[in-house]
């Protein structure tokens, strides 16, 4: 395996919004010729040493990169796919040396686990599930949840991996009578799981018993909301949503994320804050990631915008490089870096402060 990477690039720079917040520290060039689709960061152990690695996905290739000195990266493992392209990386927290991927064309058709053989170190992959998969999320305690099937035979399934990534157990949650679009864990309640549905409901399950506890209808102003983060505090449920279908409004600008608060006992809920673009910026949410009190989104304008969820405003903007829009963005799970990627395989690592 050669070192495919990288010198610190001098572009793209952060614009004048708050230039101190984002500092480019590294660039990684994915050598695969196919279109780059996702990036993630995870811990990987080799020869007894656990390292914060980067994982990149192109349509037919997933690569694992280990850190070298001076912010360079070395490709150590590569998994190849021949029939169905990769749609997204699905990191599973608390599992070392295993990552899941979702494959499909427009919709997810397969979930696969990627790992290495303990015997000879060669790349391995196993099919976890195939079918009409609507949503998937890696959960704490080595669990993976997915929803599949059509409305009348929808299944919501939890797989639990053993510590070494093998021997998975299966459990089913009670399906709601509408298609689940996204999942989110609830900070502060380990056994709770949220889902958003096509009917603009938020559903909540008890992961231990599989019970569907409540269906809570949220504001119809935004359809098909995506749930990024949820936490329980003082008897209330706080949820960060994004609205890929939101229309830009002259008075409010473009709401990219929203914080709502729900009383799960009564299902009554109210919007607390809209996270909009700064004046003069246009674009709708394409895809994004929320970690702790930071939210990042790729916008239809090709830019990346970052919000401080506590301050309530946009703190940094990465404009598109000429002829090269941003296409995906993730917060690193192993440190406080932002990973921003472009379709041509360039991944930029930024320090955000």
């Amino acid at each position: 395996h050669s070192i495919e990477q990288t010198e610190i690039a001098d572009l793209p720079a952060c614009d004048s919004l708050n230039p101190g917040n984002l500092q480019l520290v590294s660039k990684l060039k994915n050598p695969s010729g196919s279109c780059s689709v996702d990036v993630s960061a995870m811990w990987w152990e080799r020869a007894g040493l656990k390292e914060p690695c980067i994982i990149t996905a192109c349509e037919y290739v997933v690569s694992l990169w280990k850190p070298l000195d001076t912010w360079q990266w070395k490709n150590i493992y590569t998994w190849h796919f021949t029939e169905v392209p990769v749609l997204q990386i699905v990191p599973v927290p608390d599992v070392c040396n295993l990552v899941c991927v979702a494959l499909g064309n427009l919709e997810i058709r397969e979930l696969r686990a990627l790992f290495c053989s303990p015997d000879d170190g060669s790349e391995k992959q196993v099919l976890l599930k195939s079918g009409n998969i609507k949503a998937v999320l890696g959960l704490t305690k080595r669990r993976l949840v997915n929803s599949s099937g059509t409305l009348c035979d929808q299944q919501v399934e939890i797989m639990t991996f053993a510590e070494d990534g093998g021997n998975k157990e299966k459990q089913f949650l009670m399906p709601p009578e509408e298609t689940v679009l996204t999942f989110a864990e609830v900070q502060g309640l380990q056994e709770a799981l949220l889902g958003t549905t096509v009917m603009n409901n938020i559903v909540i399950w008890n992961l231990k018993t599989g019970q569907l506890l409540k269906k809570m209808h949220i504001d119809d102003s935004y359809q098909a909301s995506v749930c990024h983060k949820a936490y329980s505090e003082m008897g209330l449920l706080f949820v960060i949503l994004s609205h890929p279908c939101a229309k830009e409004s002259e008075s409010l600008g473009s709401p990219v994320f929203q914080l709502i608060v729900i009383n799960p006992k009564t299902t009554l809920n109210v919007g607390v804050m809209l996270y909009c673009l700064p004046p003069g910026q246009a674009g709708r949410f394409l895809e994004g990631d929320v970690k702790d009190d930071r939210a990042a989104a790729v916008l239809t304008s090709g830019a990346v915008a970052i919000w401080d969820l506590l301050l309530g405003h946009c703190t940094a903007l990465l404009p598109p490089v000429p002829d090269q829009n941003w296409s995906f963005v993730k917060w690193s799970g192993t440190d406080s870096h932002l990973l921003a990627g472009q379709k041509d395989g360039n991944i930029f690592v930024y320090r955000y402060s």
């Binding site: 909540i204 018993t209 019970q211 003082m234 008897g235 608060v261 009383n263 799960p264 009564t266 809920n269």
Partner: peptide
């Protein structure tokens, strides 16, 4: 927002909903 708009709040909502929901 006003908490009163959300109705009576319970700190143990998760346990309470779990005991009320069908198994």
């Amino acid at each position: 927002c006003n908490k009163a708009d959300l109705g009576p709040i319970s700190l143990n909502w998760f346990e309470e909903l779990s005991s009320e929901a069908p198994p």
